Amino acid sequence: MLNIFRALAGVLPAAALLILAGCASIPNSGPSADDVAQQAGTAIAQRYEIVDINFSTVDVLRHNGPDSFLSRFADYRPSVEPRIGVGDSISVTIWEAASGGLFSGSLATDRFTAGSKSATIPDQVVGRDGAITVPYAGRIRVAGRTTQDVQTIVENALEGKAIQPQVLINVTRPISNTVTVTGEVANGARVPLSVKGDRVLDVIAAAGGIRAPVNETYVQLSRGPVTARVAMTRVTSDPRENIYLRANDVLTLIRDPQTFIAYGATGRNAEIPFDAEGISLSQALAKSGGLLDSRADPAGVFIFRFEPESVARALRPDSPLNAPGQLTPVVYRLNLRDANSLFVAQSFRVLNRDLLYVSNAPITDIEKALGILSAAMSPAVTAASVCIAARC
């Protein structure tokens, strides 16, 4: 029996050292907090940037937030008066002061009835030269002008030819003064802009409204070479984002459910929807089931995200990863051992497609190693117990 105990005493330390030395190969859900910091790379071969989540970081991100119609288009102007453009259909009605003129009928045979004093020229489409034809006035350029301007031009052109002419110009089909609405709307269409002016929500309503849930819909506005994308909930809640639209704008409604991925030592590993326009890191942790007491490292809470070059440069001006037009991998780190971080987590916004990762505590690997050691030595211990019982 003494020999058995001596054998166990000799084997146990060696086995323990062997198993503890192999901790790196023990199954794990992901890198530890130290691994995330060490694997970021060097100044020469940088892989990603690590940024601590504090109030300074939150302030930088707030000033480099999502797109805004107001700031992107610098559009504080009210609506503009519509102007005639190429492709519009125009009708021209001309009145004369007396019968018997160019556009009025001859005096009727009935002495009590006067002849017609007006004539309507059939609708014309404004040609590529920006002009329409008016009899006896010739080719009149109308593109870029208001209806009142064109009325004056035609009246002056007919002066001395017609009897005190008065002209009414009407745009019957305004092709050039429209906004194209497409995407997640009930009826995609080319919506004419009114003289009063139309904002983003006015045009969406004219197209039949949206088909997707409001919190999952984004409004994308393209004006010339500039395109901006804003959450529908922001447009509806902030009147400043509900800007006036301009002719030839393209409005696209996009359904994009907002989700983040929770991974690691959290109560729920899954792709989790926001169910709102945006959520804070505190809300994301709550939605993912919080940190597991038995596994999680409170100092190892991370957000993995690709940031635009402008945001990455504001956070790390000297980073070698910053390149125009490219996304920079950034890992945001939160230390929940610090009570103040609970306030910071309420201000840090989680974005669509973010990866929330909580690393295991270092003690977890030791517990796993001891469990493996216990399982490995269990047969020997059992044999020793049997031997003792048998008095061998």
Rank of each mutant, 00 (worst) to 15 (best):
residue 46 Q to P: 03
residue 94 I to A: 08
residue 127 G to N: 02
residue 384 A to S: 07
residue 226 V to P: 14
residue 46 Q to D: 02
residue 301 V to Q: 04
residue 234 R to L: 05
residue 337 R to E: 08
residue 35 D to L: 01
residue 95 W to T: 09
residue 308 P to T: 11
residue 200 V to F: 03
residue 16 A to Y: 12
residue 148 Q to A: 14
residue 322 N to C: 09
residue 173 R to I: 15
residue 16 A to R: 12
residue 116 S to E: 11
residue 96 E to Q: 08
residue 12 L to E: 06
residue 237 S to W: 08
residue 121 I to F: 00
residue 191 V to W: 05
residue 153 I to W: 06
residue 192 P to K: 01
residue 137 A to V: 08
residue 327 L to S: 14
residue 255 R to V: 14
residue 216 E to V: 15
residue 163 I to K: 06
residue 53 I to R: 01
residue 189 A to G: 13
residue 115 G to Y: 05
residue 184 E to M: 14
residue 2 L to K: 04
residue 267 G to L: 05
residue 24 A to M: 03
residue 392 C to F: 10
residue 305 R to P: 12
residue 104 S to W: 04
residue 47 R to E: 00
residue 16 A to M: 13
residue 126 V to W: 08
residue 70 L to G: 08
residue 98 A to P: 02
residue 355 L to W: 10
residue 264 G to Q: 01
residue 129 D to G: 10
residue 103 F to P: 03
residue 209 G to P: 10
residue 25 S to G: 00
residue 105 G to T: 01
residue 190 R to E: 15
residue 127 G to F: 11
residue 10 G to F: 15
residue 229 R to E: 15
residue 65 G to E: 13
residue 216 E to Q: 15
residue 104 S to M: 02
residue 365 D to C: 00
residue 381 V to D: 03
residue 314 A to C: 11
residue 151 Q to Y: 10
residue 298 P to L: 06
residue 390 A to K: 05
residue 181 V to D: 12
residue 35 D to R: 01
residue 100 G to V: 09
residue 242 N to D: 15
residue 388 I to R: 02
residue 25 S to C: 00
residue 134 V to L: 03
residue 250 V to G: 14
residue 363 I to M: 09
residue 47 R to V: 03
residue 210 I to V: 15
residue 270 A to E: 14
residue 223 R to A: 14
residue 24 A to I: 07
residue 265 A to H: 03
